[in-house]
Design a protein around this nucleic acid. Sequence first.
DNA 1: CGACTCTTTGAATGGAATCAACGGTCGTGG
DNA 2: CCACGACCGTTGATTCCATTCAAAGAGTCG
Lengths: 243, 243
Amino acid sequence: MNTVDIQCEVATCRPETGDDCAAHGTCALRAFARTDPSVFDRISKQRRVFRRGEILFHAGQPFSYVCSIRSGSVKSYLCSEEGDAQVTGFWFAGELLDLNGIHRDSRACVVEALETTSVCELPTDFLQQLLSDVPAARLEMLRNMSAQVHSAEELIRVIETKRTDQRVAVFLLEMSRRVALRGLSDREIRLTMSHTDLASFLGMARETLSRTLSRFDAEGMVTGRGEVILIRDPDVLRALARG
Amino acid sequence: MNTVDIQCEVATCRPETGDDCAAHGTCALRAFARTDPSVFDRISKQRRVFRRGEILFHAGQPFSYVCSIRSGSVKSYLCSEEGDAQVTGFWFAGELLDLNGIHRDSRACVVEALETTSVCELPTDFLQQLLSDVPAARLEMLRNMSAQVHSAEELIRVIETKRTDQRVAVFLLEMSRRVALRGLSDREIRLTMSHTDLASFLGMARETLSRTLSRFDAEGMVTGRGEVILIRDPDVLRALARG
DNA sequence: CGACTCTTTGAATGGAATCAACGGTCGTGG
DNA sequence: CCACGACCGTTGATTCCATTCAAAGAGTCG
């Protein structure tokens, strides 16, 4: 068994069950089951697969389960009264979705699959039971939500203080960090979302994003601006992101 | 006993102890002690008072207690490597501070008193114990953190999609909502922070904020732009905020 | 009273949005 | 198999909102 297999031995990530989980040790639900192997089955039984464009859930629906991504990627977005969508995030294997819906017992945003995506669904009553019985689950849940507050505030800081090209640099570096966490190359970024989605997330016009990526390519910082972007010069990117 | 006294009977808010808590039923620590009056004393014993400009804690310090505001107000901010401060939030009576520090066991931001401010400090080991023993505390903590993720995302949406004058309108309405929660007039906004702080929070230059408030005053939507702002025409403000 | 900080207002600059048109890709259906 | 339309991305020209620069005014504290 190699390293990846060892990291995948718990909770949602069991190779022996024919698993497709790509979380590679980053799965937040892992910790929930750490002390009691019997909960493995209960968590891993609740699975679903969505294809590109399919909706995992809509804003306003009851918050009946916590959703964790096994593989693939999704975007979350808000719909204003005027009908225009504001993308609030992109989520990858191992990450928990829509935790900001808990405080109202209903989904805060729409979540849509960006590619074929497999998820685990943890019913909220079972979550409550886990939080009651398993100290590690309590800690993990606190840490996970805390991290989400942190990353939201970090995004605010970037949007408020950085130019558009710096925001793009920050995003590429952040994506690099996230794919590296999952054991993949930190040089190869797969953009499963459209430029329109990404521009919305970064708070700029899609034309501006397009121009920026073109410039990064022309200046040799990255290669490509389509689905795959290769980071050529992380140091220059970091210098730009720093401002 | 009037309504306010009843709302203040628990946890950090007991009039009979000569209390100065202004949370008026919005105190997040309330729920922590709901089922067991004995924890009241333990929570309410840990108090401190800070004067304007004093630091409650610095970024990077160990996360040894959760801090809840009894009365007064504070700002939280990040310091970048270049030394410039980015204000991440303003916090008032009943609100929990720096929950985004939990995931690293260290303070994520600097918190500074904007006026004379009284706080409750709940040691983390005691918090863990409460989360283990008191289901209501678990729920409250989840909801509170979820709400913080939600409000951060809401701020992102506002900053990314609204013009500067719309952001100011949104802020004033949000402040109106928050003071109303505490039983005060929803027409009178006390700005305990400087324009510089507020402009940083809203992602604009302080000159722009100043101009915007002047215009709001001149156009009759509000009165005053100093420490106290009176909302004259909430409907126009709402229409502007909606965009 | 004077030093300091914070706020206000004006004028000029600049960055990003918007408007507009073209090119590429994909899926569909003739 | 190719033509067509829909959608997405690219690039250029123009416009405008907000920042920046600059300076004066107001408030505060020792």
